[in-house]
Amino acid sequence: MSTREYEETAESRLTEGGRSKFDVVILDQHDTGRLPPGNYLFFGGIPLLPEADPDQEGDPQARGPVRGGPAVRQELIVDWDESHPALRYVSVERLWMFETRRLDLPDDAQVVIEGETTPVMAHLARDGRQYLILGFHLVRDLPGGMEELNTPWVERVSFPVFVYNALRFLTATSTLGARPSLEPAEAVTIPVARAGRSVEVTRPDGHTVSLDSRERTEVRFGGTAEVGLYRVRGTGPTDEAFAVNLFSERESDIRPVDRLVVGGQAAAVTVATGRVNQPLWPYLLLAAFALLFFEWYVYNRRVRV
């Protein structure tokens, strides 16, 4: 539906049981405050969140709104969180856009892709809602009613991979106890016993990570790159745990492949032989050892030469 239809449609078409009817709502170049609890993916738009209550306990900036500024042209990507599930198998170093929107984020937002002057992509989870915000849109308008791509990324293989990752990340229901195990780099939602309480996750290597719920009733943990058992403290009266393993057939298949696909094209497999230089030191070492053995033998036999 169009953005106008989204704003004017009846509430019953968008929500059911107090939540969004849709697994993910994707909004392109549209700012909106009509955000029932659910998951949202923004391209060139922002969620219009209320200002933080100054009387509420805690830092108001931590729960402030997302603000969008003027467009920044040809923003350079300088850093990104390669461990984030949305960027799995995505070549961020080749990401380029003609223009992106300047983003001013609250403290509880996680910057996923950082530009030279502004965040380019961020994740925000608050009050039963998740927002994956990209500052740039996909298509830009030209004079005369013409349109052109704002980024060549949409024509590359990594773009549908990103969309798949983003939808899977936003719709993940991997709460503790809901699934027996997770795959590496898959995010898990951890319930908090009491809003504002911190949660501690001990990784298989023994390192403990503290997660601040910031007045939320759940937190998301994405640092699951290492396989093994993760122990969680702070979810209730007893500790809980979840496992990360390589049950994925694709991750576990280490057999050499006969056909390698790179950038959508199959690379030819060739077999060739060539001459290489063989080192001589192993043979010299063997000769020295034989000489020492012969000297030891002669000495023990008391034979004069």
Rank of each mutant, 00 (worst) to 15 (best):
W153F: 15
S2A: 06
E226G: 03
R126G: 01
T15E: 14
D104L: 07
T189V: 15
S210D: 12
R255M: 05
G115S: 04
T15Y: 03
R259M: 09
F98T: 00
A290F: 14
E93D: 08
G38V: 07
P60G: 05
E114D: 09
T15R: 05
T270N: 02
R233W: 07
G236K: 13
D79R: 14
G264V: 12
R197W: 10
G196F: 09
P60E: 10
H84K: 04
P237W: 11
D108S: 15
Y283T: 03
Y283L: 07
L124D: 05
E226H: 03
Y131I: 05
R34W: 15
P47E: 09
S83T: 14
R216S: 10
T15M: 08
A166N: 08
P36K: 02
N300T: 14
R63Y: 13
P256C: 10
T151P: 01
G196A: 06
T224H: 12
P256N: 10
R73V: 11
R88M: 08
E114L: 14
P143T: 04
Y164E: 04
F162N: 02
V78F: 00
V269P: 02
I46N: 00
F42K: 01
L229P: 03
N277S: 12
R94K: 06
F162I: 04
L105F: 08
L260I: 14
T224E: 10
R302N: 14
D258A: 09
V271C: 03
T117V: 14
F159C: 02
F221S: 03
V298F: 13
D31V: 07
V261F: 07
W80D: 01
